[in-house]
Amino acid sequence: MGTAAVARIRLQELAVARGERIVARGISLDMRAGEITALVGPSGAGKTTLLRCIVRLDEPASGRVLIDGEDAGTLDPCALRRRVGLVMQAPVMLPGTVRENLAYGLGATDDRALDAALASTGLAPGFLDRGASELSGGEAARVAIARALARGPAALLLDEPTAALDGASAAAVERLARDLAARGLALLFVTHDEALAGRVAHRAARLAGGELVAAGPAGEMLAR
């Protein structure tokens, strides 16, 4: 466990590109253990590409990503992605049961570890045997988070995690994000919804016009 003062994830002068075009540049941002950082901005601002760059699914055009002080570019990509979970906006369930989704790529696992991951997202252990293709949108969103948690990450990146959900499911995911931060995870919550960012985040940053235009405590920053 790092102390709260050490940035779990530090972005240094990051520039991200889609194809050949730079969509955002000069992004410097810290995400600390136990905190929810909200990244807000209109769609197309490069938020998703930024998340993909943190876990090296895309290569940054320039700049660095530091994970607990280590350059992400020097880390084993598979280990990096277990340490920093990215949950996509429309999470894809792999074929099979919820158990198979949670255990994917983990080798030998016992059900207790999977139960614990599932329970922390508020889903009952009985869910393990459900077919992953039969889940509702809200259930799939929580299973996707549980699937990332089963890898024991230090940080979670959530891309518009509530955008496709009804009010009750969205509220459950907001509560879940706060619980996970309280347990010491660093969370980056990407959303175009500033009200949502104001409710869940400790700190917030706004991406607009290809730059990070403001960053600071969520209450102050979002009031501007």
């Binding site: 992605r81 996509m88 894809v92 792999l94 890898r151």
Partner: peptide, 20 residues
Amino acid sequence: IAGVETRLLLGVGVAEALAP
């Protein structure tokens, strides 16, 4: 591609993600 990237994000390598 979304399914392939989902597998990669869960921490497996390209060979494993493309195994299916």
